[in-house]
């Protein structure tokens, strides 16, 4: 089990625990150095997941987006969830592809679904939605059924095909 106390002092973390999940919240400008320390000095060599939560309608939330990094230490099986909060209008974070190559597509998905830019990412394009798509579908202000994009196609009838 990793002793978080020195890290809390060094990076100004807020620590919490819920049903065995250990979580820390870090300021956005320190997230890269924290993750770097965790990887290089504390053995968190696998990045399990990068995801994002849009807190627009969440009760009691103060910030718009929370980006979540789930880390795993392969030798001890220790897990840690690192969260950082960012806001509109230009939600931006440094990329972690330099630390874990596996972050490549995960960050692209977060960019595609939430519009969060990862500076330094070598290939930040849309991944799931078409390139022409202009909205960010998993944001809370985007309706479930879309804005009519799914009906916006030419029709082929039987007599002309």
């Amino acid at each position: 089990m990793l002793d978080l106390q020195p890290l809390i002092e060094k990076f100004g973390l807020t620590q919490s625990e819920f049903r065995g999940n250990r979580r820390v919240v870090v300021a956005a400008d320190r997230v890269y150095s924290l993750l770097e320390t965790l990887k290089n000095s504390h053995g968190f060599n696998m990045l399990i997941d990068v995801t994002c939560v849009d807190y627009l309608e969440y009760e009691g939330a103060t910030d718009r987006f929370g980006v979540v990094y789930c880390l795993l230490n392969m030798s001890t099986g220790d897990r840690l969830i690192v969260k950082t909060l960012i806001n509109d209008p230009t939600p931006t974070l440094p990329t972690v592809t330099t630390l874990w190559m596996g972050a490549d597509w995960m960050e692209r998905e977060v960019y595609d679904m939430f519009g969060i830019t990862f500076t330094g990412h070598h290939d930040l394009r849309r991944i799931l939605m078409p390139d022409e798509f202009s909205a960010f579908p998993l944001r809370k202000d985007y309706p479930l059924k879309g804005r009519g994009e799914r009906h916006n196609f030419p029709v082929i009838t039987r007599s002309e095909s």
Partner: peptide, 19 residues
């Protein structure tokens, strides 16, 4: 609860987790 959780199982393909 007003909380967040990550939990995973070993699916046939690998770690299938839900946040």
């Amino acid at each position: 609860p007003h909380e967040e959780i990550y939990a995973a199982t070993e699916s046939p393909n690998g770690e299938l987790g839900f946040y």
